[in-house]
């Protein structure tokens, strides 16, 4: 099932990040941000945490990240989480996270404890990676129409999908 532009817009809307998906915005903070590194890391992580039947991940994640870049606080947290992943990847695989195979990326996520951590934006490294990387990606996916339909729900919580679907039966 392919993630579409509609899914990206829906994910942004659900996260309070209204936008047009056109152009590129740098965060208003004074420190330059390596947005390519953030995008490549999130796309690489999405290949682990998204189900295999989803396609169109790269443009979806890129659009979603573009919305997140509007908030300097969130960007700072995301940068730290990405640094944590890259740091662990270099120790164990001598490469950055995004350059690893999908299996090795999954192992790095487990190495930092993101698999069984509870998300916490100001918590320990495992909790911050869970919040800024794993759960941010999962929230974007499963609050989108395509993510909802994967589960059998066309109008998932967080998506303004109207008031028609709740009235319809499963075969409508």
């Amino acid at each position: 099932m392919e993630l579409t532009r509609r899914d990206a817009v829906a994910a942004l809307s659900a996260l309070g990040l209204g936008g047009t998906l056109a152009g590129c915005v740098a965060p208003p903070g004074s420190e330059p941000v390596d947005t390519d590194r953030l995008r490549e890391t999130l796309v690489a992580a999405a290949a682990v945490v998204y189900p295999s039947e989803v396609s169109g991940i790269e443009p979806f994640v890129a659009a979603f990240l573009e919305g997140r870049l509007a908030d300097p606080t969130h960007v700072a947290g995301l940068e730290e989480a990405v640094a944590e992943l890259d740091g662990n990847a270099r120790v164990w695989y001598d490469a950055e996270f995004a350059a690893l195979s999908v299996a090795d990326r999954e192992q790095v996520l487990r190495n930092v404890g993101a698999d069984d951590a509870d998300e916490d934006p100001s918590g320990m490294a495992s909790e911050r990676v869970r919040y800024y990387v794993v759960n941010d990606l999962l929230l974007a996916l499963y609050a989108s129409p395509t993510g909802g339909e994967l589960v059998g729900l066309e109008n998932p919580q967080g998506h303004a999908g109207g008031i028609g679907t709740y009235q319809r039966g499963p075969n409508a």
Binding site: E106, V134, N135, L139, Y142, G152
Partner: peptide, 30 residues
């Protein structure tokens, strides 16, 4: 109209992801 778990909330908890997570969501929702 909202008995049982919301899939997106369910997705943010647990120690699984990828295909395993989707399988859990499909099992627990619906």
């Amino acid at each position: 109209n909202y008995d049982g778990p919301s899939p997106v909330e369910l997705a943010l908890t647990g120690d699984d992801w990828g295909d395993d997570l989707l399988a859990r969501l499909r099992s627990d929702y619906g």
